[in-house]
Write a protein that binds this DNA or RNA. Sequence first.
DNA 1: GTAATAGTGTCTTTAAGACACTATGTA
DNA 2: TACATAGTGTCTTAAAGACACTATTAC
Lengths: 244, 244
Amino acid sequence: MTEFEFLQSYDPREFPHPSVTVDLVLMTVRDGKLAILLQQRGDHPFKDHWALPGGFVGIDEGLDDAAVRVLLAKTGMPAGGWLEQLYTFGNPARDPRTRIITVAYFALLPLDVLSRALQARGDLELVELEVPWPGERGGAVAVKSAGGGSLDLAFDHAEVLGTAVKRLRGKLDYSTIAFALLPELFTLRDLQAVHEAILGVTLNKPAFRRRMLDKGWIEGTGARELGTSYRPAELYRLKHNQGD
Amino acid sequence: MTEFEFLQSYDPREFPHPSVTVDLVLMTVRDGKLAILLQQRGDHPFKDHWALPGGFVGIDEGLDDAAVRVLLAKTGMPAGGWLEQLYTFGNPARDPRTRIITVAYFALLPLDVLSRALQARGDLELVELEVPWPGERGGAVAVKSAGGGSLDLAFDHAEVLGTAVKRLRGKLDYSTIAFALLPELFTLRDLQAVHEAILGVTLNKPAFRRRMLDKGWIEGTGARELGTSYRPAELYRLKHNQGD
DNA sequence: GTAATAGTGTCTTTAAGACACTATGTA
DNA sequence: TACATAGTGTCTTAAAGACACTATTAC
């Protein structure tokens, strides 16, 4: 069969095709804890539950392009931090309306950038995660509401979130992913705080400093932080071409 | 318009949806090297190029289910070894015919199982990989033909393959993935050979033994291998409930 | 016994944890 | 000077590499 014959015999409407969406797990660190951007649903199904922001993938749009577009639409932020494909969820029953396969992405932004972007929108909220450690295997993760209770997530989004946290923790010490949560200039204490928030443990200071400096990812600037009432720490920056 | 209203008014035939397929990177170890199952294309596009076996995802079929179905259809083998979702490739230009998003899976089977399954089919072939080490970043991987030359892969399958090798190498020492390439009973030398084939390096014997035994994944059986002309090694097995 | 590989003892090297110590800024 | 945190020296511990050594089986 030639390509022409194939296309002749191939009618895209012959079989129903699934819809394909992207969903974003947009995370940051706030008050020493992992936090995630969620959107409360106003309609059925899963009315009043919390959902990951997402959107349909256009017929001529790449998956990464769709993720960037949704990120921009929801937060007003250009790609900036870190954005990577996470996993594709395609259980036929995951959406009660119709067959929707979703390609989940996870994204990281520093808190200040994210907060600024969110002030213009009332339908989005940053909520803290309650992630058990150790023993998480990528399963569901509880999300703590402002009041302290646990939030219900829509669809299979608790599973998506669990997968994201597992991926983030797994990549933490062999990639430069943590720097996406920090400003351009940061102290080693800031960097350690981010690691501790992501892992949910406290780390040994000298060992942490040794490890970070030995990796060769960062360089000191000679400048120091301002506004402390004690000895200011040196400011470091990620070296160029260490972005991933 | 909310997502619900959108879907209410949404006629699935109003906008074209992408097709969704699964493609399998089915790997094994032969002669101390990684090898992959490929299918030579008989038709355009990419006629005579080599492609990963794959198939369309049914409208009511889960992604993992589709991968298992394709694995069974191509090799005649039930799931058996190791099968996990790898990455989803959705570049709009990746297939010149129409928009096809493919969810790539990678699977591992022992060589003997795979060889037996392949004898009934003439359109599939096992070809060795030529994977540079170190420095691979998930990019394209060369595939060595029987004659020694390099094979051309169809579509974006060289990139898919590179991603698979990177994933396999990355999971090697914190998961039991290597055991999917071994029979139920194996020697520590067999296990080391599999690791060396996957990583493309030679490993230190005492250190390897210590590491494997310390992980607690395997147990000795007391039995020994047969048919050697020298001292036979003890046979080990993967402990139950260590399957992942 | 010889050959060949299985399997181990041990020294060195490397990296992490523990923890106390010194250094240096603000007020 | 007092204070609080930055930043380091060093001891211990754990694990990997190197490499030689012993053990065991087929023949």
